[in-house]
Every structure is written in structure tokens, then in C-alpha cells.
Design a protein around this nucleic acid. Structure first.
Lengths: 209, 209
DNA sequence: ACTCAGAGTCGCCAAAAAGGAGAGCTAAAA
DNA sequence: TTTTAGCTCTCCTTTTTGGCGACTCTGAGT
């Protein structure tokens, strides 16, 4: 899937780094964009900060926007202080979710997306925060998975993903090669993909296969 | 990539459910297997339990094995009690990581994998726990990514993943179509893949592209 | 009961794309 | 120097794709 995020704009809006997680599932997101400083990522990962991170804690619990500075009292491990040592001085987080039962998305349980953005020099302006929220919302919407793929189409894609030829897939599923072509063609159409490789990459990122 | 986990065996070992995350990145695992009860997943997700989950907290901080019953004193939100209402009565978690700087894996920062397993009727036996740890370790090892792919090979796969034709990729990168074929061929060899679609699926799951 | 639309299946054909073998060329490592 | 890995190219084969039409089945509406 093409990266639809304007990386230049994000680099301008959050010059010190950003982290975006789109459509969280049970525990993990459908897509992740991580441009936090490498030193911070190592520091953070090595210490397992994830479970104490006040930003993630907020993002899982709330919806809307917050400056990191508003989370200070909820940071017993001083993670925000340590982040400052990596140029992550001022920050803002946005979090959003589908409405539960939103028929348009076909997602029963609304899924959540959030982003965290940092700069070194000053607090974020309200207009910048609004734009960042829009960016996360756009990506959230872009990853709304199609729900009309049939099990036959998904199964054909699963086997193609594992490197099988059309004739092998056809034999394994007990149908003609033409039928497999038709299934993949239909899947490409539904996924708005240019070829089978593209369709399979998209379906994988959607968590469909 | 084929699912190499013996689902039947897991179903026998953890009849009430299991959740395995292999090779965590910053926030995101290379692979996730979730067979927890659907009701529990909804309950858990809707309430954002992830950030308070004593099992995840343990898994991010420790290495080895632990019974859920040993985590009770570290569960202020009573998540383990609530899990019991979904048949998740007895449980065990295992967590493991590469040694930092392990040359064999080529991973600078050792990555972490963990699993959580549940049954309704009794505590897990030590031999069962050992077997579960082996299963997670096997999967962890299976997902050791190859490190010898060149940037040229990765770039060709990225563009192919996004649906571009070989001639388009060649034009965009300013080389011949034959060169792109050669790069993909080399990538297929290194990834032990049967064709480009397979190679791209593998590279994606390894987090290489 | 009847028609209609849509989805799924299949075969055929021609064109496009991908894959495979082999060989030359270069730069860096042993 | 020899070796090795990476890149490039050409020629040829295999696979995939797109377009067409036809058949079946099912469910919705008339």
C-alpha cells in the first residue's frame, strides 16, 4: 500500500519526531509510523516503557487532544522527563476512534488510532494540533477495510501469498484455474489494487488474510 | 508465510485461549496469534485494558515463565478476576528475547516475544509450560529476519508491493527492467521465496519493507 | 410463478508481465 | 591475484492478466 501520509508535512509539523498507530486491534495496530529519534526508541524499548508511558495510557483511555505538558502529573516514572533528553521537549497527542456500531466502516467494535508528535523549540499551536488530528483521522479512514470480500477470494489470496501458482491453488481448492483468476480479479477490484501482489499486500495490511 | 504453529496442539495445551506476540518492535510485533475468547477480546479492547494488564506488564519487564496466579498482587484493576468470567481461569505467560548484540540474529537490540495461555479446569503442569515456551521460542527463531538484503533489493520490493510493474519500477529507479528482475530474484533467493508475491509477503512480515 | 440482478464458475484467446539461464562488468574483500 | 557479491543486459519460456461470452444458483421484487 502506498504511504499516503505527507512525510514532508509531518517532518515540518513535528520536527523532533512522531509516532502514529492506526486502528489498534486486540493489542496492536494495523499500521504504525515511527519517526521518533533512534536513541529514544532504543532507550524506550530496552526499558519496556510502553506499559508506563503516560502518553499511551492517555491515548488508550481518552479521545481528543492533549499536550504532553498536561500529562506530567500522571508520569510516576518520569518518562516525559527522560524524553526531553532526546530532543522531545514539547509534544502533543491525539486519539480517536470509530463510533461503536458504525455501519459505514463495518467495524462492530470501533477501533482506535492515535498519534504522538514532538518538537524541540516551542509548544504546538492550536492550528497545528488540529492539522495533526486531521492527518491521523485521514489515515484512520484510509485504513477502513473493505468488508465485502468472500471467503473464496481470501483463501485464494492466502495461497498466492504463500507463493503458490494459480494452477496449484486451483488444484488444491478443487476448482479450475479460471475460477482462481476470477477470484483474484474480484479481490483486486474490491481492494482497488493494481495487481495480485498489490491486492495481497493491502489485504495483509488490513488484517484480512 | 505459512503458519508454522501447530494449532491443534495449542488448542489442546490452552483450551480456554491463547495470545502470542512474536518479535515486538517499538510497539508492534512481527506476528500475532490471538485465540482468546471473542467476548473477552471485546471486553478488554473496549476498556483499554492493555495499559493495566498485569500479564503484559510482566511480559514487557521479565523473561521466563510465570503463572497468572503469581501476578495477582500486581493487578490493581482486577483484570485477572474479570478474565475468569470468560473461562480464563488458570493461565501462564512466557516471555523471551534475543541476547543483545546476538550476531546470529543480526538484531542489534534483542527483540522480545511472549505468549499468554489459559485453561479453565486446572493449573498448567511444568511440562506443559516448558512446551509452551518451546513453541514461542520456535516461532521467535523462525521469524529471525535475513539481514543480507541490499537497499536496492528492498526498494524494488517496496515498489512492487505498491502495485507497480517491473518496467515502471525500472523507470522510476533509472535502471533496466532486467536489473529489477535480478534484484527481485536475489531477494527471492535470500528470503527463500517461490515468487515475488511470496518474497514481499515474507519481507513485510519481517518488517524489512 | 415469473423475471431480474448479482455472484460465482468456467473456457477461450491474445497480450502483458514475470521468471529463468547465461554472460559481462565492476568494486571490494581475501 | 583470485574470489565474491552486486549490478546489468539479452534471449527465451512460463505465468499472469484482461476481455469476452455462457452457464448456474440464489434471493428480491413483481
Amino acid at each position: 500500500m502506498k504511504n499516503l501520509i505527507d512525510l514532508e508535512e509531518l517532518k515540518t509539523l513535528a520536527p523532533a519526531g512522531y509516532h502514529i498507530a492506526v486502528r489498534m486491534g486486540f493489542v496492536f495496530p494495523a499500521e504504525e509510523h515511527n519517526a521518533m529519534p533512534l536513541g529514544w526508541v532504543r532507550h524506550y524499548t530496552a526499558r519496556g516503557f510502553m506499559m508506563q508511558d503516560p502518553i499511551l495510557r492517555w491515548a488508550y483511555a481518552e479521545t481528543g487532544q492533549t499536550r504532553w505538558s498536561a500529562l506530567k502529573e500522571n508520569d510516576p516514572f518520569g518518562i516525559l522527563d527522560q524524553a526531553r533528553g532526546f530532543g522531545l521537549t514539547f509534544g502533543v497527542a491525539v486519539s480517536l476512534r470509530d463510533l461503536p456500531g458504525d455501519a459505514a466502516t463495518g467495524v462492530e467494535q470501533g477501533s482506535r488510532s492515535f498519534g504522538s508528535f514532538a518538537r524541540h523549540d516551542r509548544e504546538f499551536a492550536p492550528s497545528e494540533i488540529a492539522r495533526l488530528q486531521d492527518i491521523v483521522q485521514e489515515r484512520h479512514d484510509a485504513l477502513t477495510p473493505p468488508t465485502n470480500l468472500t471467503e473464496a477470494e481470501l483463501e485464494a489470496m492466502r495461497l498466492a501469498r504463500d507463493g503458490m501458482l494459480l494452477k496449484e491453488i486451483a488444484h488444491q481448492l478443487g476448482v479450475s484455474e479460471g475460477a482462481i483468476k476470477q477470484r483474484l480479479k474480484s479481490a483486486k477490484l474490491k481492494l482497488d489494487a493494481r495487481n495480485s501482489t498489490h491486492a495481497i499486500a493491502k489485504a495483509t495490511q488490513f488484517g484480512l488474510i
